[in-house]
């Protein structure tokens, strides 16, 4: 395998597993944790139609997470499987951004979390699908259609909650006050991401920002909600420094495999 050849060719980068592994794991963790959060709504949605919508999105993300975990296991080449990676790592080993582990809160809170994630996720996948790593490109190609719908769904809901009743607006405002600080982490590259950006495997996140910003402005204008001006970004999740919420989430997510190791059904 290549060792330290960061000299530049994209083909070389695509075959450098030790650089790619942590990033693919980060993508996998991100989709898995958000899928789990959305699955917590199952049976508790505000109406049947939205209960189903959230379960659908959770399943989309879970499918995407599986693809990433399988690829990560292959990149690592240590014999770990997708299940080992998902079920037998501790919270500090998880690489998801803080945003996706935040509790569901009320429906507005879940919607805003989803909107902030979808807006990044969709625009990232659009770049990844044309990226140099064939496997990542294939996963992105499949997932970008799902992400496009997720973004449509969460955008429509931000508009309805913002421009809905006094109550819905109040709840959306509260969600903005709580969650906005976590949006910045998505587009703030870690050292691992920067290394991949430098060799062209990942897009420079600065190139995603104009479209993300334009979409956010459009949605918030429709929703009649002033765009938050706070730019502070709470970082941590992508480097393993998580909020207390992730431990509780994982203890539920991993319960069966921890209690009955190797269990299958």
């Amino acid at each position: 395998m290549l060792t330290q050849d960061l000299s530049g060719t994209k083909a070389a980068a695509a075959t450098e597993p030790s650089l790619l592994f942590p990033y693919v794991l980060q993508l996998a963790d991100t989709s898995l944790i958000l899928a789990h959060r959305l699955s917590e709504w199952c049976g508790h949605g505000p109406i049947l139609e939205q209960d189903l919508a959230m379960a659908n999105i959770a399943l989309d993300l879970l499918g995407e997470a599986r693809s990433y975990y399988q690829y990560a296991a292959e990149l690592e080449g240590q014999g770990r499987t997708e299940d080992d990676l998902a079920y037998l790592r501790s919270a500090v080993e998880y690489r998801n951004p803080l945003l996706v582990e935040q509790p569901n809160g009320d429906f507005a809170h879940t919607i805003l979390r989803q909107f902030l994630f979808d807006n990044f996720h969709y625009h990232l996948l659009r770049k990844l699908k044309d990226g140099p790593d064939a496997q990542l490109a294939a996963i992105a190609e499949k997932s970008v259609k799902e992400a496009a719908y997720h973004l449509k769904w969460s955008s429509e809901w931000v508009i309805r909650l913002g421009d809905g009743t006094d109550e819905s607006r109040k709840r959306l405002d509260k969600a903005i006050a709580t969650l906005w600080r976590f949006a910045g982490e998505l587009t703030t590259p870690t050292a691992a991401e920067t290394a991949l950006q430098e060799i062209g495997v990942l897009p420079d996140y600065a190139t995603l920002l104009p479209e993300m910003q334009a979409h956010t402005e459009h949605v918030f204008a429709e929703a009649n909600v002033p765009l938050p001006t706070a730019v502070f970004a709470q970082l941590g999740g992508k480097t393993g420094r998580h909020s207390e919420h992730l431990g509780y989430l994982l203890s539920e997510l991993q319960y069966m495999q921890r209690t009955y190791p190797g269990l299958t059904w």
């Binding site: 109406i47 049947l48 139609e49 189903l52 919508a53 659908n56 719908y149 449509k152 429509e156």
Partner: peptide, 20 residues
Amino acid sequence: SLHAADATMAVQNARDVYTR
């Protein structure tokens, strides 16, 4: 049939409920 606040939401809900 399904419930929705408006036509756009109705189409989205229909997608989620009836075309899975």
